[in-house]
């Protein structure tokens, strides 16, 4: 049964990389089921994350957000800060796709704070970029400028010319 769980996970990932998102979802749902049977929280978190990603490419953003929220919940329980940051970043981007910019800002700020805690300058730069865009969408031009300047500063530091 444990091997079946891992195999469903691998199958889901392969379908995903082939662009077959429907079968990817079906496989990761099986993987999730088996992870729950075993009480394997890490595998459960991975399945939610993979499910969220596949839903993005199916254009099912609300469903993607649900999966990412579960992944975030587990990441917090497991006290895995890097994974928590990743889930917040995914949620920020998903809410941007849904044009819910206030919620997007909430999650991108959470991502920013963790990136700063972890001294992850690349993550911090991405958070600032995202926050600048979300504030621009809301017409908060002063805030957008603040984050654009921070993004520029960090990009120079990390040598990101693009």
């Amino acid at each position: 049964r444990a091997a079946q769980g891992r195999t469903y996970g691998n199958l889901g990932n392969t379908y995903y990389l082939l662009g077959n998102f429907r079968d990817a979802v079906a496989s990761h749902e099986q993987r999730l089921l088996i992870a729950k049977e075993f009480g394997d929280r890490s595998a459960e978190r991975r399945a939610y994350c993979n499910l969220g990603n596949a839903c993005i490419f199916l254009g099912e953003f609300e469903r993607a957000a649900e999966h990412y929220r579960r992944a975030l919940q587990i990441a917090r329980q497991l006290k895995d800060l890097a994974v928590e940051a990743q889930a917040c970043y995914s949620l920020g981007n998903t809410y941007t796709l849904m044009q819910d910019f206030e919620r997007a800002i909430d999650y991108h700020l959470k991502h920013l704070i963790i990136a700063q805690d972890l001294n992850d300058r690349i993550g911090e730069g991405r958070a600032c970029w995202s926050l600048g865009n979300a504030h621009t969408a809301l017409g908060n031009h002063d805030q957008a400028m603040h984050f654009a300047e921070k993004h520029l500063e960090i990009s120079k530091e990390t040598g990101d010319r693009s």
């Binding site: 891992r6 996970g9 691998n10 990932n13 995903y16 990389l17 595998a43 991975r46 399945a47 994350c49 993979n50 990603n53 993005i56 490419f57 254009g59 970043y89 995914s90 981007n93 941007t96 796709l97 849904m98 044009q99 991405r126 970029w129 995202s130 600048g132 865009n133 969408a137």
Partner: peptide, 24 residues
Amino acid sequence: RIHTIQVDSVQRWMEDLRQMTEVE
């Protein structure tokens, strides 16, 4: 959707996401 896809930071995220899997 076409409108929001033009948010460059999201577009970049999706490009990265397309190659990203949580490996067993």
